[in-house]
């Protein structure tokens, strides 16, 4: 465990709590892509099946359970509790374009051909593209509310910190996880355009358009 890893996890948690808090306080999920949130719930579900098979640390278990709960509560808020405010006409990204290639790739390129490892690989690949429906929605409507942009900023920051964590681990432990690093780099690239808008426009106007 290094500083980049801890800060990365904290920023990931903060992103999810910000999003939940925003939905809860405004009693609305306008501008949030339900598809992205459903994909994140699927990512955590398929990755954290190891909760049942091996115990790593208390921190690890607690964080995994919190991430799972947050993602399920978010999906529940969007598709049930505050369904009326959900902007489904603008959440039109075709999920099969992500799910089909990601499923295929996880069967082809994995560490071992066992159900748990394939699901773990699937979750890594899926996480790298899960934000696309949200970014697609923002580009379609042409705007994002301030809190949504903060959410995306912290999610992107988490990715960037994880990259730093992998560089650190490579140098200190000689540990290098090829699948996670390649997907992580791809995922971080998706946030670059958004980061640019966030810094140049978001800060002064309070929203990204």
């Amino acid at each position: 465990m290094n500083l980049f890893r801890i800060l990365g996890d904290v920023s990931h948690l903060l992103a999810m709590i910000l999003l939940l808090g925003k939905i809860w306080r405004s009693k609305s999920c306008r501008g949030i892509s339900g598809k992205s949130q459903a994909l994140f719930a699927l990512v955590f579900t398929t990755r954290y099946l190891d909760l049942f098979t091996n115990f790593i640390s208390l921190y690890n278990t607690v964080m995994k359970v919190i991430f799972l709960l947050c993602s399920y509560v978010t999906v529940y808020m969007i598709y049930w509790k505050f369904w009326k405010s959900f902007d489904s006409e603008n959440d039109t990204f075709r999920l099969e374009f992500l799910l089909v290639p990601v499923t295929g790739l996880s069967f082809l390129e994995n560490y071992s051909f066992t159900p748990l490892e394939i699901l773990w690989t699937f979750s890594i690949y899926l996480e790298s593209v899960a934000i696309l429906p949200q970014l697609f929605m923002i580009s379609k409507t042409g705007e994002a509310e301030t809190i949504t942009t903060h959410y995306l900023f912290f999610l992107g920051l988490y990715r960037a910190l994880y990259l730093a964590n992998w560089i650190w681990r490579y140098h200190t432990e000689n540990f290098y996880d090829q699948i996670a690093v390649v997907s992580g780099v791809v995922q971080t690239i998706f946030y670059c355009d958004f980061f640019y808008l966030y810094v140049t426009k978001g800060r002064c106007q309070g929203r990204v358009e």
């Binding site: 890893r5 996890d9 990931h12 190891d50 091996n54 790593i56 640390s57 690890n60 964080m63 995994k64 991430f67 560490y111 773990w120 994880y162 964590n165 681990r169 432990e173 540990f175 996880d177 996670a180």
Partner: peptide, 10 residues
């Protein structure tokens, strides 16, 4: 060992 190191990350 590597598998454990991977599953340690969130």
């Amino acid at each position: 060992k590597d598998q454990e190191a991977r599953h340690d990350e969130l």
